[in-house]
Nucleic acid binder design. Structure first.
Length: 106
DNA sequence: ACGACGGCCCTCG
DNA sequence: ACGAGGGCCGTCG
């Protein structure tokens, strides 16, 4: 088990500070576009070790999304802001901070 | 094997 | 801007 989840975490760990990516982008980068939902599922289950900045993963429309089970967690927002990312109306500016993985990773 | 459930996404009204 | 509906996928019971 945890083949997909592993990859998800690995990629998540590569997100540079001050940047964010989306659930769908991760799915796409893993060569499994459409598994965006499964991505969130993976992050949720793994209890996000402090090693992995799960909070840097947001929704495709910029809205923060959930964190450790709760939606629109203030904790997630806080951490993002601490990385220097501004959040307005519960959304981040993807135009500014979006991070793409480009090539299909594994 | 099966069905339910999510840190989702996209298209319409 | 916002909610509803349908689709997709890996995990867990």
């Amino acid at each position: 088990m945890m083949d997909f989840s592993q990859k998800v975490l690995r990629l998540t760990g590569k997100i540079p500070k001050g940047r964010v990516t989306t659930y769908s982008e991760i799915a796409r980068a893993l060569g499994n576009p459409g598994a965006s939902r499964a991505v969130g599922n993976a992050l949720r289950g793994n209890a996000c070790p402090d090693k992995i900045p799960c909070y840097r993963v947001v929704r495709s429309d910029g809205s923060v999304g959930g964190y450790s089970g709760v939606m629109n967690s203030q904790e997630k927002t806080r951490r993002l802001e601490r990385d220097g990312i501004e959040i307005r109306q519960g959304k981040v500016d993807l135009k500014k901070h979006f991070h793409s993985f480009g090539r299909i990773h594994q």
